[in-house]
Amino acid sequence: MISKIRKTITGTEYWDSEKKKTLFVPYGEEVKFEVGEVTAKEVEQGKVEGISLDNLTIPQLKEYAVGKGIEIPKEITKRDDILEFLS
């Protein structure tokens, strides 16, 4: 399955879970493969099925919080502080 990783000013990155590699589609070009939707299921606090919050970057942690309806205060900017806030 191919899933969207992130969108940048130069294009969009996708992850191919079968071939275990990143695919890049430059801005303005057509996607020539089918993109599946990846959903994560929360298993226990601090972990998402197959993903540990400890391995996520600050933007990914903020996106996770938004998805859970949690608003992280602007004063909390460090990764460790965000992890502590979410736990």
Results as ranks from 00 to 15, higher is better:
Ser3Asp: 12
Lys4Ile: 00
Lys4Arg: 13
Lys7Cys: 09
Lys7Leu: 08
Ile9Gly: 09
Thr10Lys: 15
Gly11Lys: 00
Gly11Arg: 00
Gly11Gln: 01
Gly11Glu: 01
Glu13Gln: 10
Tyr14Cys: 01
Trp15Leu: 05
Asp16Ile: 03
Asp16Asn: 13
Glu18Cys: 06
Glu18Ile: 12
Lys19Ile: 09
Lys21Phe: 09
Lys21Asp: 11
Thr22His: 08
Phe24Gln: 07
Phe24Val: 05
Val25Cys: 03
Pro26Lys: 05
Gly28Ile: 02
Glu30Asp: 11
Glu30Gln: 10
Glu30Phe: 07
Lys32Cys: 03
Lys32Leu: 11
Phe33Gly: 00
Glu34Ile: 12
Glu34Trp: 08
Glu34Val: 13
Val35Lys: 02
Val38Cys: 12
Thr39Tyr: 12
Thr39Leu: 13
Thr39Asp: 10
Thr39Val: 15
Thr39Trp: 08
Ala40Gln: 13
Ala40Glu: 13
Ala40Asn: 12
Lys41Thr: 15
Lys41Met: 12
Glu42Asn: 10
Glu42Thr: 11
Glu44Ser: 15
Glu44Trp: 14
Glu44Thr: 15
Gln45Met: 10
Lys47Trp: 09
Lys47Gly: 05
Val48Met: 15
Gly50Gln: 04
Gly50Leu: 04
Ile51Glu: 10
Ile51Thr: 10
Ile51Asn: 08
Ser52Ile: 00
Ser52Phe: 08
Ser52Gly: 13
Ser52Pro: 04
Ser52Met: 07
Asp54Asn: 15
Asn55Glu: 12
Leu56Tyr: 01
Ile58Pro: 03
Gln60Lys: 07
Gln60Ile: 00
Gln60Ala: 11
Leu61Cys: 06
Tyr64Cys: 02
Gly67Ile: 03
Lys68Arg: 14
Lys68Cys: 07
Gly69Asn: 04
Gly69His: 02
Gly69Phe: 04
Gly69Cys: 05
Gly69Trp: 02
Gly69Asp: 04
Ile70Ser: 06
Lys74Val: 09
Lys74Asp: 14
Lys74Phe: 08
Glu75Pro: 00
Ile76Phe: 01
Ile76Ala: 02
Thr77Gln: 14
Arg79Cys: 07
Arg79Gly: 05
Arg79Phe: 06
Asp81Cys: 05
Glu84Tyr: 09
Glu84Ala: 15
Phe85Met: 06
Ser87Val: 09
